Simulated assay, not measured.
Amino acid sequence: MVKKTQKNEENKIEADNKEYVPTVLSLLDKDENVVSDVQKEIFEEEIQELPPIEEGQLNISGIYVYDLGKKFETKVYIRNGLSDDLKLGNIPLLIINSKGETLGRQVFNLESLGTLPPHSARPLKLYFDKANVNVESIPADDWSIVLDGKFDITATIKPIFEGLPEDIDLEDKLVFDKFLEELPELKEGEFSISTFSIGIQKDGNILVTCVMRNATSRPMSIDKVPVTVLDAEKRIVKSNLFKLKDFSINSGRARICNFAFPTNVRPEEDVALEDWTVAYQLPKVNKK
């Protein structure tokens, strides 16, 4: 086994106008419950010994390489120096020596790594096929693993609510928070509208409540929203282009918005229309 570690006396320093950020251990939920406290301490010690990384960097640092016969097993730490969650796809990696010579190259699919929280480090074992390695053995104390060329990195955003009513009940807030937490993650630059509920009220209005999320880098102003309500058989019940006044969503935030369609129905109690759906577009008009 060839092990490589470097001492890092400080976990966050500033020099040459560069800010270096600390990274903390992050494990997948399935690993969090099975990894022992002793093993976690070992992980944390190894992370402390890694060289510092700058704010905004993705870093891969090797700990050891072990010859398995047909493969080289490597233990690495993937470190996210960004302030956003990060998901990785196909990543080309190089094993190089101190002269910058390539000892091996292989593309790894790192989707199984899951979402990397901001400023976190996650251990991973990678296996280089010997067909992808140019040398018989990895030289002791003269190797490192680096990123190679273009690769697939996706920053994911988990917006938080803004603009909630000041008098909102705690129970209602918890329900909205749970709904927001369970929505699919957004990629950086995306905007989404998700339906929270559809129901018909005692006053006869069909009320659509939705959650809008802004994962772009700028505040987003919304002045018009097309809304079409469909019943359980996907038949159009109501449709309208709603105009909003002074409605905006800041970057990385989510807001609740209600849309009401008047009807002549007057139920005795509010009724949830659980099998109904909403399309945030107007129906297409067939031209004859």
Results as ranks from 00 to 15, higher is better:
Lys4His: 06
Gln6Tyr: 07
Ile13Phe: 06
Glu14Ile: 04
Lys18Gly: 08
Tyr20Ser: 02
Pro22Cys: 05
Val24His: 15
Asp29Ile: 13
Lys30Asn: 14
Glu32Arg: 13
Asn33Tyr: 02
Asp37Ile: 03
Gln39Gly: 00
Ile42Asp: 00
Ile47Met: 05
Ile47Ala: 04
Gln48Met: 14
Pro51Cys: 05
Pro52Thr: 09
Ile53His: 03
Gly56Cys: 02
Gly56Val: 12
Gln57Ile: 08
Leu58Trp: 05
Ile63His: 00
Tyr64Met: 01
Tyr64Glu: 08
Tyr66Trp: 06
Asp67Cys: 03
Leu68Val: 02
Gly69Asp: 05
Lys71Tyr: 11
Lys71His: 11
Phe72Cys: 04
Phe72Pro: 02
Glu73Thr: 05
Val76Cys: 00
Ile78Tyr: 04
Ser83Cys: 03
Gly89Ser: 08
Asn90Phe: 07
Asn90Tyr: 08
Ile91Ala: 08
Pro92Gln: 10
Leu94Pro: 01
Ile95Met: 15
Ile96Cys: 00
Ser98Trp: 00
Lys99Ser: 13
Gly100Asn: 05
Thr102Val: 10
Leu103Val: 02
Gly104Phe: 01
Arg105Thr: 09
Val107Lys: 08
Leu110Val: 00
Ser112Pro: 03
Ser112Lys: 11
Ser112Met: 08
Leu113Gly: 04
Thr115His: 03
Pro117Gln: 05
Ser120Pro: 11
Arg122His: 01
Pro123Met: 00
Pro123Leu: 02
Lys125Asp: 08
Leu126Lys: 02
Tyr127Met: 13
Phe128Lys: 04
Asp129Lys: 15
Lys130Val: 01
Lys130Phe: 08
Val133Gly: 04
Val133Gln: 10
Asn134Trp: 13
Asn134Gln: 12
Ile138Cys: 04
Pro139Val: 06
Pro139Phe: 02
Asp142Met: 06
Val146Lys: 05
Leu147Lys: 00
Gly149Phe: 06
Lys150Asn: 11
Ala155Ser: 12
Lys158Phe: 13
Ile160Ser: 13
Glu162Gly: 07
Gly163Gln: 12
Gly163Phe: 12
Pro165Glu: 08
Asp167Ile: 01
Leu170Glu: 12
Leu174Thr: 15
Phe176Arg: 04
Lys178Trp: 15
Phe179Asp: 02
Glu182Met: 08
Glu182Cys: 06
Pro184Lys: 06
Pro184Asn: 07
Leu186Gly: 03
Leu186Glu: 05
Glu188Ser: 12
Phe191Thr: 07
Phe191Asn: 05
Ser192Glu: 10
Ser192Lys: 13
Thr195Tyr: 01
Phe196Ile: 06
Ser197Met: 10
Ile198Cys: 02
Asn205Ser: 12
Asn205His: 11
Ile206Leu: 15
Ile206Thr: 12
Leu207Ala: 07
Val208Ile: 14
Thr209Trp: 01
Val211Ser: 00
Met212Trp: 11
Met212Pro: 07
Asn214Gly: 02
Thr216Tyr: 01
Arg218Gln: 13
Arg218Asp: 13
Ile222Leu: 11
Val225Ile: 10
Val225Leu: 07
Pro226Met: 11
Val227Ala: 06
Ala232Pro: 07
Val237Lys: 10
Asn240Trp: 04
Lys245Asn: 09
Asp246Cys: 04
Phe247Asn: 04
Ser248Tyr: 03
Arg253Pro: 09
Ala254Val: 04
Cys257Glu: 10
Ala260Glu: 12
Thr263Ala: 12
Asn264Tyr: 15
Asn264Ala: 14
Arg266Gly: 08
Glu269Trp: 15
Val271Ala: 07
Ala272Asp: 09
Ala272Val: 14
Leu273Gln: 10
Leu273Asn: 09
Leu273Asp: 10
Val278Ile: 14
Ala279Thr: 10
Lys284Phe: 15
